[in-house]
Design a protein around this nucleic acid. Structure first.
Lengths: 153, 153
DNA sequence: GCGATTTAGTTGAGCGTTCAACTAGATGGC
DNA sequence: GCCATCTAGTTGAACGCTCAACTAAATCGC
């Protein structure tokens, strides 16, 4: 038998469109601000953040890819760019000869440190300032639920 | 005096990272599904949807750009692709000689009709199935708040 | 041990987006 | 009426991402 599509009802439709507009608007805005103020897209900023938090500021490519929710290909290209900018260096992995370590240079750290305050202000201004504490809590729960759910499906 | 950055507290940090992971994961997944099943990215799907809902299936380029939250340049490129695929046609605007109308062809409508059920199932499976009705309501309010807020800042 | 499979990472082509520069037509001030 | 300004839309280059194909090294099965 033909499986009928469960179309979205009016509430779901409205929710879905608002969600699309909000997330796209938010990410576009933050991306533009970061590009303007720090000369890098948000995805690259996130890579630098993850490296800055890692022990000795270095991570295996695969771990970095997982941490940033990126494909290996995407990360490979990104690290190539960041290396060309002087913000990241590659190193051989001592325990696995296939492996590569990405490490944050001092220059990369300085760039990140200079970019962070403005970016955090942006996240605050465009996201958290608009929401009540209860909504922040709701958004966290919803997001964590979705992350878990996406890993299963 | 130097303005101190209001850093994110632990809860906000956690919310922000979960939000990033969730929205990126969700959009990546839907994009990949739509590309695989319908041969188009989500942004193009949205353009076809908006056109299909418009009177006589046609819209001014600017209105379409606003409706899809897209820059004019992006829309211009996108319509060029969709036109090459035979899904959209351009027409002169009768009331403004600078203007262009984008109109959905029968072929475009058929492609959209074929893609829609699968895409809606995807949205349901990856988003709405994971959330309680209360969370859907929360997400709608949060999204609408953010959309309003972004227009102001 | 050794071949088959898996895992780590890279590469290049093609596509979509951005940004800045541009053309052309509409509109406002006087 | 006419010049300045604004609005509509396009263009091309640069960039980032995706996908598929690839190399090389580790691991599994026996």
């Amino acid at each position: 038998m033909v499986v009928m599509t469960r179309w979205l009802d009016e509430d779901e439709q409205r929710t879905w469109r608002a969600f699309l507009t909000a997330t796209r608007g938010l990410m576009d805005t933050l991306d533009r601000e970061l590009q303007r103020d720090a000369g890098m897209p948000h995805a690259y900023y996130e890579i630098l953040v993850r490296l800055s938090e890692a022990p000795e500021r270095r991570l295996r490519m695969s771990d970095l890819a997982d941490a940033t929710g990126s494909s290996r290909s995407r990360l490979s290209h990104a690290i190539a760019r960041l290396e060309a900018a002087g913000w990241v260096r590659r190193e051989e992995c001592p325990t696995d000869r296939r492996g590569q370590l990405a490490l944050l240079t001092d220059e990369g750290f300085a760039t990140l440190a200079a970019a962070a305050p403005g970016h955090v202000e942006g996240v605050r201004r465009h996201l958290f300032d608009a929401l009540t504490p209860a909504q922040v809590d709701q958004l966290r729960r919803i997001s964590e639920t979705l992350v878990d759910h996406l890993r299963e499906t």
